[in-house]
Design a protein around this nucleic acid. Structure first.
Lengths: 343, 343
DNA sequence: ATGAAAGCGCTAACAG
DNA sequence: CTGTTAGCGCTTTCAT
């Protein structure tokens, strides 16, 4: 059916113009007359020509390609972020290289180098940016923008887009306080998690702001195992029966916590203002994917807007591409409260 | 620090050889003497040279790039599949373009074309392959392999890797039958889902194979809303109290079902052989992500090995690249039973 | 407003 | 075993 490979030359011939004219039409740069423009486009259409980006970029045009490095696309936050990035990039006429640096970021350098070799116009670093200082230099050398789009703060002197973890926790905490809670505990996350640290900072801020005491023993470290979360919840409620609300660091913890509450002979839900003895325990969780509706009653939770982080990263990168001399900026994406029935 | 852009020429000069020698060393093709090889590599190292794939592919070398089209990377199966694909591709020295065709596959053509323009060596189609017949032709024209890696059967005459949905359902059903269940219901999925159809086929097969009746009214359609799943479960158990086990089409349904069982005054767990009256209801779910441990007791479930699907797709594609004339093959990835405590 | 021509960095013959 | 050379398809001055 179609020829082996249609080149710009054949298009030019078919349209009765020269290659440069076709090129100009393609990139919309030169001032080409309406008529020629139409003729060329017709030729392109009828021949089924597809422009060879490699050749284009070799000669100097942009490659239209952006690289992404994440540890593993399956991590909910990064999956969501990747989706947003890909979507937005597509509307900008660009495509995305996906690379995975591995669970502990062990392939970070390899990923970076292969992206460089592919001639990407820019690189988005999603998480695993710990020992990535040299990437910043490499990127500068290669003169391509590097931007971070991760869950928590990262590199210095680099554009960064990330969710506002502190604000997320403040949002959750204030929400609870305003609904009458004065004893709010924190469950979940590991002590080494930066995201968690930022969130707990926000939680602490709101507590103090409203004159509530900050009780370190109400902050429970816990892996993402339902069983553990449930057990720790029971224990917590047993030791501190006055606790009326719990913030849960992620969805699985929230679920475990939910069971822990039930197992303690309480129910999950908003504070019952009239009851003297507090049977009802409120739960608010943090989450990366929208629409998770894990329990019954469904959980009120704070959504980190990961997809928006991705979108913004794309937008930001495009800006950077246009104007490489801009000062590094930090863009913080506000959290979204999904109000349901658990608090 | 480093030069603007190191080319093969500079490497050649530094190593005191010609460009072609360098090129040969790079691709490991020609028979270059050990000594020169080392010299060249040293030069590459010290100059920080990175090979320009665009130029390479323009001239004829492979681009080392593979394209992927999924509807949305966030769908658990496809996220997992993408991760596997990316991993395996990386070990093969290739990289991946990620494109999203949108919730209803509306950008399918656009994705395909942009991948083509980027000069990919092959394309993996993950889901949304419904009205994709013309892609097969386009791919043939462009002489690049197209392979499907999706949740259920898809295109004809195309290499395909997918999970064995029927086997998954048989595995689950037999597992239950062997543990004494004779009345097994099915909950979840939409009537238009091919994956579901394949699974229900397997469920049916096992039922008949063991001489158990196939009861259409024990097969309940249900969206992925916990609430609905819970309500439908209660109703089902109310109308057919003899049902002792339920297969759940996905994780959210399983969770809803779990609550439905509890709400019906039963508990979740394996069949209690000695009790006359069947209080305990067994649950087995189907899932794409490993390690989901949603309830307490944790759910026994059938894992679709999505990551393996991705890995195999990569391997398969590489094979295809080496030998384009192979007959189309269907590769079916067996499910994995994750035994926990709900059945 | 359009065309001619000079490469971008690399690979693949073909010579030596 | 290694060097020379001719492009791959495209963009981009510089003329016209």
């Amino acid at each position: 059916m179609s020829q082996r490979k249609i080149t710009i030359n054949e298009v030019a011939a078919a349209a009765g113009v020269s290659v440069s004219t076709v090129s100009l039409v393609l990139s919309g740069k030169g001032r080409i007359s309406e008529a020629t423009c139409v003729r060329v486009n017709q030729a392109i259409e009828s021949l089924g020509y597809v422009r060879n980006r490699s050749a284009a970029m070799l000669r100097g045009g942009g490659s239209g390609v952006v690289g992404l490095i994440v540890r593993d696309v399956c991590q909910p936050f990064y999956a969501e972020m990747t989706a947003g990035l890909t979507e937005e990039l597509a509307t900008q006429g660009k495509v995305l290289f996906l690379t995975q640096s591995g669970a502990r970021g062990e392939h970070l350098q390899r990923c970076f180098d292969s992206l460089l070799a592919q001639g990407v116009e820019g690189i988005v670093l999603g998480g695993g940016a710990d020992n990535a200082g040299d990437l910043v230099m490499k990127a500068r050398d290669a003169e391509i923008p590097l931007i971070c789009a991760s869950r928590a703060s990262a590199l210095e002197e680099v554009d960064a887009i990330r969710p506002d973890n502190a604000a997320a926790a403040r949002l959750a905490t204030e929400y609870l306080i305003k609904r009458g809670h004065r004893r709010i505990a924190w469950l979940g996350g590991s002590g080494t998690s930066l995201t968690r640290a930022e969130r707990i900072g926000g939680y602490c801020t709101s507590l103090l702001q409203y004159g509530l005491p900050f009780r370190p023993d109400w902050i429970i470290e816990c892996g993402s195992h339902q069983r553990d979360a449930a057990a720790l919840t029971s224990e917590l409620l047993h030791q501190h029966p006055a606790i009326s609300a719990i913030l849960c660091h992620n969805a699985s913890v929230a679920l475990g916590c939910y069971f822990g509450v039930l197992r303690s002979g309480r129910t999950v839900g908003p504070k019952a203002m009239d009851s003297y003895y507090n049977q009802q325990t409120a739960l608010v969780g943090f989450g990366d994917v929208p629409g998770a509706e894990l329990t019954d009653p469904p959980l009120t939770f704070i959504h980190s807007a990961a997809r928006r982080v991705g979108r913004q990263a794309a937008l930001h990168l495009v800006q950077r591409l246009d104007n490489p001399t801009l000062a590094p900026r930090n863009l913080i994406i506000p959290p979204v409260l999904i109000e349901r029935e658990s608090a």
